[in-house]
Simulated assay, not measured.
Amino acid sequence: MAALINLWLAIRCGKARIEAKAMHGDGGHPLLLKRMRAQANFVEYTPFALLLVLGLELSGHAGWPLALTASLFLIGRVSHGLGMDADIAGPLRQAGMALTFLPLLGLIAAALLAAFGLI
């Protein structure tokens, strides 16, 4: 799913790039810049979440809570990507960040608890 979301974000960038006729950088086009940042933001957060999910799965802590947490994270990344098109940090972007930070914090806590044998 993460790879598909990244591809979707890249396609959105590509469409904005073609419309702006900016083949390099953002060409001074606000929408293109926003979409580029949305994809870059996805790439900045997602590897950590995926590594935490992988570590928890490999340590035998898979199950519906892990799947739900990962799903919420991915929903947050989609919401953030859509919300980045707006000129202000509206509800989609805010929800996207909340649904990024909270699951990520949960994954970090679960990984630490698993590492110390507390779960």
Rank of each mutant, 00 (worst) to 15 (best):
V53C: 03
A62E: 05
G28W: 07
L112P: 10
N41R: 02
F101S: 03
H80L: 07
A2I: 15
G76V: 02
L112W: 15
N6G: 14
L54Q: 11
R37K: 14
L33N: 11
L118R: 08
L102F: 04
G117I: 09
L52C: 08
A111N: 00
I11K: 04
L9N: 05
A111E: 00
R93T: 06
L72S: 11
T69Q: 06
R77W: 00
Y45N: 08
A115N: 10
N6V: 12
A38P: 00
A40Y: 09
Y45C: 04
M36V: 14
T69S: 09
V43H: 13
L102S: 00
G14M: 11
A2M: 13
H29D: 12
A10E: 08
I5R: 00
A95H: 10
A67F: 02
Q94C: 12
W64N: 10
A95M: 14
L92I: 09
L74H: 00
G28V: 08
E44A: 13
A67W: 01
I75K: 02
L33H: 14
A3R: 14
P103H: 03
E57T: 10
C13P: 06
H29G: 03
L9Q: 07
G60D: 03
G28S: 12
P47G: 03
L74F: 02
G117R: 09
L4C: 08
N41Q: 01
P47H: 03
P103Y: 01
P65T: 11
N6K: 11
A20V: 10
L92F: 14
S71Q: 08
M84K: 07
G25L: 13
L7W: 09
G96H: 03
S59K: 11
I18P: 07
L82R: 07
M36E: 06
A16D: 01
F116W: 13
F42V: 05
M23W: 15
D85G: 12
A109G: 04
G25P: 15
D85E: 12
G55L: 14
F116T: 09
G83Q: 06
A22T: 06
L112M: 15
R17Y: 07
A86F: 11
L51W: 04
G90M: 15
F116D: 09
Q39Y: 04
A38D: 02
